[in-house]
Computed example of a mutant assay.
Amino acid sequence: MKRILLTLAAAGLFFLQASAQKTTGEAVKVLPGRWSAEKANAWYAKQPWFVGANFIPSTAINELEMWQADSFDPTTIDRELGWAAGIGMNSMRVFLHNLPWENDAEGFKKRIDQFLTIAAKHKIKILFVLFDSCWNDDPKTGTQPKPKPGVHNSGWLRAPGTKRLFDSRTWGGLEAYTKGVLTAFGKDDRVLGWDLFNEPSNSGYNDAVMPLLMKTFEWARAANPSQPITAGWWTDHPLSNEFMFANSDIITFHNYRPSDDLEKQIKDLQKFGRPIICTEYMARKHKSLFETCLPIFKKYKVGAINWGLVQGKTNTIYAWDEPIPSGDEPKLWFHDIFRTDGTVYKAEEVKVIRDLTK
């Protein structure tokens, strides 16, 4: 996801800096319950080579539109996951959000279960993401905005957003959400695992995110799911990276760079002696391509989850830094594989995916 900076209010910045300073000395603490490397590798040995995409139906602009009761769209989900399965994909990374849980936990659980039933029908396992520091702040339930023409992820939402990140007095709802989701689905074999916090130090949060990041891992460990827990590398931020690497059962990371850089990073991450999954890659403009990267992933049996499946309201065919205000289709798609009618953007890419996942 695009790297967006946030200008923090003075009072909030002071609070977060103070909180981060308090946690700095504890950042590499390994919380109780982390899987041993032996357990993680034994689990991974039983799994297929995971290949998939970050999934949101083309009819949703963000996590709330995907999951709220009045806009949840199982018909489109079923159709689009079928397209993914048809080219050999067996896994999807899917973002949840705390607000649907806090507003209607039972309804949200039913929709998650319905989604997992659809995914299982297509033999696709789900890696769920709970929190996210990227894109638009101050999330609100209800009708979501329309896409801005030609703007990448114009409506995507952070979870929980800056106000609640600043105020630990509001974290009771976040704790209930984390423990509630992982308790409800923590023994469900339709779930691949739990990616607790996407790019936590993004949006200028840096060290300020550490108190909530650490609490999220504590809450997840308390729920004791049978699936692995992780949060992944996305940039060289030492405090969050050290903590996430020290507390993840499996290693996850993002790489939107060419295949030679990808291979170097995989070799570096092998030092942890744990299974590795890349949870974001494939940006055509940056030479992160199916044709060159997917063979590298297969060579090392590193899971490969690209950004984007179907062209839709998220507008991720447009590059992070190159809006097209007219809304005209870019000559080179940034992300995504399928058009909304099920045809593919590049047949040669799909052939590579099919051939490598046979």
Rank of each mutant, 00 (worst) to 15 (best):
W83R: 12
A69G: 09
G82I: 12
G82C: 06
N62P: 11
N62V: 03
W67Y: 08
D70E: 14
P57W: 00
D70W: 00
I56T: 09
T59N: 08
T75N: 09
L64S: 03
A53V: 14
T76H: 09
D70K: 14
E63P: 00
P74F: 07
F55H: 11
D73M: 06
A85V: 04
E63N: 14
Q68V: 10
G52V: 11
D73H: 10
M66S: 00
R79S: 11
N62F: 08
W67T: 02
P74C: 12
P74Q: 11
I77W: 01
E80A: 07
E63H: 07
P57E: 00
L64W: 03
A60L: 12
A69E: 13
M66V: 00
T75A: 15
Q68T: 01
S58W: 09
W83H: 12
R79F: 06
I56E: 07
N54T: 11
E63S: 15
D78E: 15
T75D: 11
R79T: 15
A85E: 13
W67P: 04
F72C: 05
M66Q: 15
L81D: 07
G52Q: 06
I61Y: 02
G82T: 07
F72H: 08
D70F: 07
G52S: 06
A60R: 12
P74G: 12
A60P: 14
W67M: 07
N54Q: 13
T75E: 14
M66K: 02
T76R: 15
Q68W: 06
T59D: 06
D78W: 02
S71E: 02
G52A: 03
W83I: 10
T59R: 06
F55D: 09
A84Q: 15
E65L: 03
A84W: 10
A69W: 00
N62C: 04
P57V: 00
L64Q: 09
T59M: 04
A84C: 13
L64G: 04
A53Q: 13
D73A: 12
L81Q: 05
T76K: 15
A69N: 02
E80S: 04
G82S: 10
A84N: 14
W83M: 12
I56D: 01
P74E: 11
S58E: 03
I77F: 05
A69V: 01
L81E: 04
S58Q: 15
W83E: 11
I56C: 10
I77H: 02
N62E: 12
I61M: 03
G82D: 05
W67S: 02
N54S: 13
Q68A: 03
M66G: 00
A69Y: 00
S71K: 03
A85T: 09
A85H: 15
L81I: 03
M66N: 07
P57T: 01
D78H: 14
I77K: 02
N54E: 14
A60H: 10
R79G: 01
E65G: 14
P57H: 01
M66L: 09
E63M: 12
P57Y: 01
T76I: 15
P74N: 03
M66Y: 12
T75R: 14
L81G: 03
I77L: 07
P57L: 00
G52F: 03
P74T: 06
E63D: 14
E65S: 13
A69D: 08
E65P: 07
I56F: 11
A84E: 13
S71M: 02
L64F: 10
P57D: 01
A85L: 05
